[in-house]
Amino acid sequence: MALANASSERWKWRQPSVIPGFGLTLGFTLFYLSAIVLIPLAGLGIRSASMGWGAFWSLVTDERLIAALRVSFSTSLFAALVNVVFGVLVAWVLVRYRFPGRRIIDAAVDLPFALPTAVAGIALTAIYAPRGIIGQYFQPLGIKIAYTPIGIVIALIFVSLPFVVRTVQPVMEEINREVEEAAATLGASRFQTVFRVILPGLAPAILTGFALAFGRSFGEYGSVIFIAGNLPYKSEIAPLLIFMRLEEFNYPAATAIGAIMLVIAFSVLLSINLIQAWSRRRFGYGS
């Protein structure tokens, strides 16, 4: 109590309240956040900065790193796009239709959140390897899925699917039926109503889901390394490169890659916040 009272006098930036514990809880929050997250992340920043621009630049323009970033970027983008299409479809089916098994499917969408990534990684590899459940049908056609970028995309589709579904689903539930009826009274076919009224209205949620899925995919490690094959310049992802540099105790190189990945992660976070702000302004909703 004494702490809270003292702090309410000192800090003018908070509104007075009779509820106790502000100083204690905020103090602990800031301490814990700093100790676990902020200081370690700042350490990465300081290490990269202290390296000097020249050294940093030569590390991040390494050809193998650029190839790995390209693989990470393109596979993440592709997986996020696939999930935008199917994630919206799954959300639509779950929100709009009632059918046997709906609740099970709804619960199963969270499986990638709950299943450890390493488990998903070896399972997907077993399925798509040349002699696997699905891989065996592609082998005679000369198509390799596991140990190629296609395999990476499949793993990333798995891990990032729930992000699109769970972002779009609640917004879809809030759609006003009157808006659909209005479109119909104006002569719009059901197809036109869906594609020109409903989906554009969901744009912020879909974009947010896309960004979340992309961000998760870009940093993903566990599910990918088993199925990727990890061929340098071909199917090697950036997080794996960090891991390898650390195993070689090449900390500067690992730090530089980490810094680049952190910048990309922050850009994704920033764009999500911008989408949300735009959505609140234009559409009057946003989470």
Partner: peptide, 26 residues
């Protein structure tokens, strides 16, 4: 502050490991 709390979700798990190596390593 809320954004900062969500930060670990945006960061690759490998980076989570990396930052502790840099903090406690040689």
């Amino acid at each position: 502050l809320t954004t900062l709390i969500d930060l670990p979700f945006s960061v690759s798990p490998v980076i989570a490991g990396l930052v502790y190596i840099l903090l406690f390593g040689a």
